[in-house]
Amino acid sequence: MQLNNDLNNLQIYCDESGFTGNKLLDVDQPIFTFASVASNEEEAKFIVEKIIKDYGIQNGEIKSGNLVKSQKGLRALDEVLEILDERYKICICDKKYAIAGKFFEYIFEPALAKKNSIFYGINFHRFITDYLHLKLVTQDKSAEVIFEEFYKIMKQGVDTPTDSLFQIASNQSDPVLNQILKFAHYNKDSFLYEMDGYLGDGAGKWILDITTTCLFSSLGKWGQKIDILDVYCDSSKPLNANQEIFNSMIGRTEKKSQIHEQMNLEQPLTFNLKQPVQMVDSKNFYGIQLADAIAGSFNYAYKNIKDEKNQLAQKWMNKIFRDESILVTFLGGDYEYANIEKAGAMLNWLILNHIVQKCDDGLSILDNISDEILSLRQLMLLNPPPNVKVWNI
């Protein structure tokens, strides 16, 4: 059967692998992947039935969670990826990196919002995120305590500011974590004000979950090629709770994007939906089974990327890192922005110390902050710390 390559006559099917909801520190499921595939039920049925027959798959349904457990199953997934080449998109999220980014978004961003472009421009957000991610990966107990409290607050909500919220620890051995915790403690009111009335109900119940973000980003990418999107997703509690954001895209014909000049990135903000996103059962929709196969393949591949002998994991990951059109979202990293041997990271470390000191002194963080950052930069250039490459500043 020849595949239909007219994208405007196809549906978009979506599924995920590694879902744990708000529990982004689940030890058994460290990676979340979200896949979307352009197909239709006729060809999807043909592909699924071919794979089931050729590889002797039991139960009459493609389930990547089972297929990744054997070499025969991995070959079956590889054939699915080959058949659907250039017809799928993938989001890959290291959950520890994702929750570190959420911490910056909800704890730091409200306090810095009025002048946040300054901090984003010098990658202050990446310094904080990368450092927290590094500490979580190395299983630093101090970082785990911070995120346990963060998770509890985001899940249950806090009615009023309390002295115990992000309490400053006197025995904190890590100087960067100590300053991050102090910032969180001093600026808890701006965080609570931002979250007032949102946590705990409806969409707010799934505030840490990344399913909705991945679906929205994926549809934004598809919307750049397809005029009207007809979307089907495996039934999901977070997506059911967040239907409003997608319903606002029904009949949305204008195309808006946000340009991130520093990253040379265009992020679509709108897309045109034919109808509300349909929540369906994978047993009844072959296209969802294909999306499951793709999501599971890349979940497996990312977990095994460091195994140079795993040829399929290497093949799949190399493909998406070479082709920007496939990879929609990648939340992970090599901690580059937390390496204080680089001037950019050292500058951000000095800035963190500076704004926490302003909090200690009861001063507004943002007053004169542009000039103060320039002064810190000049100080580094004139008196560079040992081992810091100042030309990277």
Rank of each mutant, 00 (worst) to 15 (best):
7 L>H: 06
17 S>A: 15
18 G>P: 02
20 T>A: 01
29 Q>C: 14
30 P>M: 03
31 I>T: 11
37 V>I: 14
38 A>I: 11
39 S>K: 04
48 V>L: 07
52 I>N: 02
55 Y>H: 13
56 G>E: 07
56 G>Y: 06
59 N>V: 14
74 L>S: 05
75 R>K: 14
81 L>T: 08
92 I>W: 09
94 D>L: 04
96 K>C: 08
105 E>L: 11
107 I>T: 01
111 A>E: 08
116 N>P: 01
118 I>M: 03
124 F>R: 09
126 R>K: 12
138 T>R: 13
140 D>Q: 05
140 D>K: 07
145 V>K: 13
147 F>D: 02
148 E>K: 15
148 E>Y: 09
148 E>V: 03
152 K>Y: 11
152 K>T: 15
157 G>F: 04
162 T>M: 10
167 Q>C: 08
179 Q>F: 11
182 K>F: 07
188 K>M: 00
194 E>V: 01
206 W>S: 08
213 T>C: 06
220 G>F: 03
235 S>A: 11
236 S>E: 07
237 K>W: 00
240 N>E: 15
241 A>N: 13
243 Q>W: 04
246 F>W: 04
254 E>N: 12
255 K>V: 11
262 Q>E: 13
263 M>E: 13
267 Q>E: 08
269 L>H: 01
269 L>R: 11
279 M>I: 06
285 F>I: 15
288 I>W: 02
290 L>Q: 06
291 A>G: 02
293 A>Q: 06
296 G>E: 00
302 Y>T: 01
310 N>E: 11
314 Q>K: 06
316 W>Y: 05
317 M>K: 09
318 N>Y: 07
320 I>A: 04
326 I>K: 15
334 D>L: 14
341 E>I: 10
341 E>Q: 10
343 A>M: 07
343 A>K: 11
344 G>F: 08
347 L>C: 08
349 W>Q: 10
350 L>M: 12
351 I>Y: 06
363 L>Y: 07
365 I>T: 06
371 D>P: 12
377 R>E: 14
380 M>A: 09
381 L>F: 10
384 P>Y: 04
385 P>G: 01
385 P>H: 01
386 P>L: 14
